[in-house]
Design a protein around this nucleic acid. Structure first.
Lengths: 255, 255
DNA sequence: AGGAATTTGTGCGTATGTATC
DNA sequence: AGATACATACGCACAAATTCC
């Protein structure tokens, strides 16, 4: 650390040693694939175009593409192109033995774990909001909007708002619903959630939040936006969850 | 099948289409190793000599050698040479082949994806804070504290503070660090992160946050607390990340 | 059917960076 | 410090497979 003769000032930002170009390119493409910028089976731009758009030589682009092919992310066919490989391991129906009911419920108490449960605030059949992306294959113009208060071991930790397609049921009453919603989808509506994507933001507690929820409406809190797909690959559910992070946290474990 | 004008005669012997040169070279070397022409640990001739003796370009020789290295037959060390590997196969995850460098970096731009990079704000060797759980097996009472500004495609999206055990290095300078920290752990410190756990809360931007970070100190934002373990199961790293959720989000995908 | 255009595969040569000895 | 050897990167030429007209 150089000793500056100048008066102490804002910390100097030093660039770290960058990764090799071909690795950065591979990383960029891999993250684009994970983010869904490319559909499964879609063809990438040819090497020559990628070379121009990514500002690297064809050879370097080739090295990045070859790396991703060796990882199984891409498939390269001579004379044809480079294609994005789908996730071809879509598991068969979830036996209750094989998978946890609340496997996709990512909230935990500070102490870890906790048993999820829910109280129903509101159930309403509504026209699909335009803001939400294409839903359930677009079969029905309607969807159900569900509002719930969620608990972990009797303590209210979140409120949530869920939309799911109405094509599976013409009518739906509160009594029909199961506390474990994904289990309800599977046993009553005939599809099951096999994939979900959560985006976490800072949001504000909605005004319909009940008094039981310790965080007052308008308060800043952690907001989870979720999209959930059935095994067929169609988007089945969209939801927002507002979490009281004094009591529980979103937990993600990676390996 | 061309019709010959000559009288029918013995079937014409046509040379089969040869394999690509780099494959034939790999085969040649692999068979040489199997036949015991080379001892385990022995150094091969340098690329330039192989290029001459095998009558192929350096690039082609390189491709063959890289193939054999990926198969575990050879080990290539920059500045040293290419060595024949024995039967014992204690290979680290072979950074480039196995997984994404930034596999555990869960931030994405609103549009999805983006290439991660980092600027270094500060690096300091400190006593382990009591608040942090047992660290690196408790071998050293010290750890390094690293502060960085993180980017996705040139836009600053987060600041982070990272602690990792000092037992791997007595001294550490800024220049030693790699931009991809987990990659640095693997290549320089001799362990690799195989598991991580993130807890998401609402926090406030720390006061040491540089001006480049668009969110002012004290502002409410999404805070990520991470613990990361090495393959041996020891906690190696603890970090906090404060995200400007107007620009990027924590994204988790489940299946 | 055939031929042109496109796209990846193979191979060559070179220059420069970086680690090792 | 200098030489050696592998790593990265660029650019080009041609071959082979595919696609399209």
């Amino acid at each position: 650390m150089p000793i500056s003769s100048q008066p102490s000032m804002a910390p100097q930002l030093t660039p770290a040693k960058p990764l090799p170009l071909f690795l950065r390119l591979a990383e960029l493409l891999a993250r684009g694939i994970a983010a869904g910028h490319y559909q499964a089976g879609e063809r990438l731009a040819p090497e020559s175009e990628l070379s121009l758009s990514l500002n690297a030589s064809v050879g370097t682009v080739r090295k990045a593409l070859a790396l991703l092919e060796s990882r199984g992310l891409l498939e390269r066919k001579q004379g044809s192109g480079t294609y994005v490989r789908g996730r071809e391991q879509d598991s068969p129906p979830s036996q209750t033995a094989s998978r946890n009911i609340y496997e996709f419920f990512r909230l935990e108490l500070e102490s870890g774990g906790g048993l999820p449960s829910a109280l129903l605030i509101d159930l309403k059949k509504v026209r699909k909001p335009a803001a939400v992306p294409t839903f359930g294959g677009g079969a029905s113009p309607f969807c159900y909007r569900l509002r719930r208060l969620r608990f972990l071991n009797e303590t209210p930790v979140a409120v949530e708002e869920i939309w799911f397609d109405a094509r599976h049921r013409e009518h739906l009453r509160i009594e029909d619903l199961d506390e474990a919603l994904y289990h309800f989808y599977e046993t009553e509506l005939g599809f099951w959630i096999s994939r979900a994507e959560d985006r976490l933001k800072v949001g504000r507690v909605p005004d319909w939040s009940p008094a039981q929820f310790q965080l007052a409406p308008g308060q800043a809190c952690c907001k989870i936006e979720r999209k959930a797909w059935s095994s067929g690959g169609t988007l089945e559910e969209f939801s927002n969850t507002w979490v009281d992070t004094r009591l529980a946290h979103y937990v993600a474990r990676w390996s």
